[in-house]
Simulated assay, not measured.
Amino acid sequence: MDDERGLAPDGTIAREGALERVPEAFAPVVEAARARISGTFGPDRLHSAYLYGSVPRGTATPGVSDLDLQLALHDEPTAADRADARAVETALDRDFPQTDGVGILLSGTRLLLSEAERHDAGFFVACLCTPLLGPDLADGLPRYRPTSLLARETNGDLARLLPGWRDRAARGDDRRALGRRVGRRLVRTGFTLVMPRWGGWTSDLDRSAAAFAGFYPECAEQMRLAVATGRAPSPDPAVLSVLIDDLGPWLAAEYTAVHGEKASRSG
């Protein structure tokens, strides 16, 4: 494996996480998540469960990092499924102070394996998620390369997100949550903008920003601000404004010019 570029020997993107990389402090949280998810959803509803983010990558910091999970259900998620997921989130967050929040994504297996999601949700499961429970959906998905198609389908919808972010900022919504979301998404978008030229994959915020800066040095300072905001959002509304009203529109326009817009999803 090319650790510098996150690639397997054949040049495809390697899966970035593994259970053996989970930091010792987070091992009890992961085991509790396994037990609660299994006990709550059961085999009739749950196809498989996955970890993603800093915990399976081995870079999580106790008291700072959150625990992120993806559940693949046999059928499309219902209101009852979402309520059960929220209950699991609340219980884990309450019982384990080493996590700064728990987030569970719910998806049906049909969606995750669909042709429309092949280079978005499918890529996410195959390369960015670490199996925790059940059969691995990655077995039914292709090996991915750092292509313009992958860039377009993962992050080519930034322009559609900006109006909603502006509305939330104007309403004074939780700036901490909004700042983390905006900062991280801008860093990911900046990285995937240059990903095909950089020739690999990383989810690390600092490496992502550095890769971006190698091609767009004039925007490096703003991208470093996005990294800082994604980790520890500033209460200063001017910081969020720089990201949403300055970096965001430029990045969306450049992304569209280089890769095109993400395909619309029906429904």
Score class of each variant (00 low, 15 high):
Ala18Trp: 00
His74Phe: 10
Gly190Asn: 14
Val187Asp: 12
Gly260Val: 13
Tyr144Arg: 02
Leu161Phe: 12
Pro9Gln: 05
Gly214Glu: 12
Val88Trp: 14
Pro217His: 06
Pro217Arg: 09
Pro62Ser: 14
Asn155His: 14
Ala232Asn: 07
Asp120Trp: 00
Glu115Ser: 08
Asp100Tyr: 07
Ala79Met: 03
Gly199Val: 09
Asp120Thr: 04
Val22Glu: 15
Asp66Glu: 07
Asp75Leu: 02
Leu105Thr: 11
Gly108Glu: 08
Thr154Tyr: 07
Arg34Cys: 01
Phe26Asp: 10
Ala232Phe: 10
Asp139Met: 07
Asp81Lys: 04
Arg265Lys: 11
Gly267Tyr: 04
Leu161Asp: 12
Ala27Ser: 07
Asp68Leu: 03
Arg15Lys: 10
Ala252Gly: 11
Arg36Met: 05
Phe26Arg: 09
Asp81Phe: 03
Glu218Met: 08
Pro97Ile: 07
Leu133Cys: 12
Asp246His: 14
Leu7Ala: 08
Leu19Ile: 15
Leu247Gly: 04
Leu46Phe: 09
Glu89Pro: 04
Leu92Lys: 00
Pro135Val: 02
Arg166Gln: 13
Ser148Asp: 15
Gln70Trp: 12
Ala83Asp: 13
Val30Gly: 00
Thr229Ala: 02
Leu19His: 00
Leu51Asn: 05
Pro146Ser: 10
Ser234Met: 01
Gly6Gln: 03
Met195Trp: 03
Gly190Tyr: 04
Ser208Met: 08
Thr202Asp: 15
Glu24Ile: 04
Glu76Lys: 13
Ala116Asn: 05
Pro233Cys: 10
Ala121Tyr: 05
Leu128Pro: 00
Thr40His: 08
Gly214His: 03
Pro233Val: 05
Ala257Asn: 01
Asp120Arg: 14
Pro28Met: 02
Thr154Trp: 04
Arg265Gly: 03
Glu153Ser: 06
Asp2Glu: 07
Thr202Tyr: 05
Asp66Gln: 02
Leu92Tyr: 11
Asp100Glu: 02
Asp68Pro: 01
Gly179Cys: 00
Pro28Ser: 05
Gly183Thr: 07
Asp95Asn: 13
Leu205His: 11
Pro62Ala: 13
Ala257Leu: 10
Asp120Leu: 01
Ala253Leu: 05
Glu254Pro: 03
Arg118Val: 15
Leu150Asp: 00
Asp204Lys: 15
Cys129Glu: 05
Arg168Lys: 11
Leu19Lys: 06
Asp10Ile: 07
Leu162Glu: 04
Pro217Glu: 03
Gly230Thr: 08
Ser107Thr: 14
Met223Asn: 09
Gly156Asp: 12
Gln70Val: 14
Gly200Asn: 09
Leu132Asn: 11
